[in-house]
Design a binder for these strands. Structure first.
Lengths: 208, 208
DNA sequence: TCAACAGTGTGATTCTAGTCACCAACAGCC
DNA sequence: GGCTGTTGGTGACTAGAATCACACTGTTGA
């Protein structure tokens, strides 16, 4: 089971509390875990798998924000839980996932009871806030080719490999751009030697 | 004094604690309160005045994020305080300000001691996160004219008046655009009748 | 009163990115 | 093999926005 290694920095007491309180739900790859506008009754803790968090535009476009990996919680779901508000983002399983749903009351209680939970929650807030800030930076100050390079390296880091199996269309969706533009920019980047293109594969050069 | 009304939702105990622990600093309008990259030793609570929070681009451009009004705290400064990290944003006084600096240790302690402080901090996180998310939406999905309209209404709401005393250059800076473009868009909006232009003044029509 | 300057208006040009149209390569499947 | 859907490549065109250049107006202050 992933329980133990997942939350190893937590006190034993807290771990027991979590296991006693959480409802475990599983999702298959591609499944939508949470719609934007959906009402939340609990906070999401990712036990296994990977969850993609993204923003939906009014016109149906989407915009990638970040991934949640095992051991991470959705900052927004914590905030919403405390206030019982509706979700502002979409969450989709990109791998088969096991999610622990923790009732919002527990989230608040544990903040006072367990120092490690308090640190965990604050750390979750901070990381996501900074990630969002970094994303905003990219969109506000950088051109598309710079953003594309950033995106690819972020993906590589996230996946732990410089061989990305991803389509141009997927990249375009994540960046709220269009497939042709992404293809062209990738081609230019290949000519500059910073990556190699293949069908469904992008191989980043290591020296960059 | 602004103390009492400012923190009226707090317990008396907490109010005393804050007054005992906080170091009061004053800033004059225009003064930079915090540089990005600066090391923080405390969390900022705005007692009076108004603080502008914005992001700095590598090229020297800037990007307006939000204002802090009396009674509000800087979410980032709370997060940084807990982790003792450096600031990721700039803070500038746009009016003469009185800022209370609260040592980071107190921020953590009070989370456990005072329910009202806990709610205050979580609420601060949530509001800023949503504000940032909204801003990201604007930049990612909207065109400049839509963003401009959004910006003006946000300013009007913030200032509590539909008569904005602001220059085109200032707007352009806040949106990381250029003065000419903003001037042209404003002119178009005036022709559409949704505002009136004057020197240093933009008057929004009420019916929109 | 007369620079000097800040704020604004406007045309011309350039650049980035999105859109349209179409084709080629490849994979899976009957 | 031959059909079909997915992926990627490319040229032509368009729109949005940045940039450059310069003119005009009102304000300030020596």
């Amino acid at each position: 089971m992933s329980h133990l290694q997942l939350l190893s920095e937590f006190e034993t007491e807290l771990r027991k509390d979590i296991e006693a309180s959480a409802i475990v739900r599983t999702f298959t790859s591609g499944e939508i875990i949470m719609h934007s506008g959906q009402n939340l009754r609990a906070t999401m803790l990712v036990a296994s798998g990977r969850v993609k968090i993204f923003r939906e535009g009014a016109d149906g476009g989407e915009f990638f924000m970040y991934y949640l990996n095992p051991g991470e919680a959705c900052a927004l779901s914590i905030m919403c839980a405390v206030r019982q508000e509706t979700s502002k983002v979409m969450a989709q399983a990109v791998e088969d996932c096991e999610i622990w749903m923790v009732p919002f009351q527990k989230v608040s209680d544990w903040m006072r009871l367990y120092p490690s939970w308090y640190r965990f929650v604050v750390e979750t807030y901070r990381e996501r806030f900074e990630e969002l800030l970094e994303t905003l930076d990219q969109v506000a100050f950088r051109s598309l080719d710079e953003r594309l390079e950033y995106y690819l390296h972020k993906q590589a880091k996230e996946m732990g490999s410089s061989n990305l199996s991803i389509t141009h269309q997927q990249i375009a969706s994540d960046m709220n751009s269009s497939r042709e533009v992404v293809s062209r920019l990738l081609k230019k980047m290949e000519q500059r030697g910073i990556l190699k293109l293949g069908r469904n594969v992008i191989q980043l050069s290591l020296h960059n």
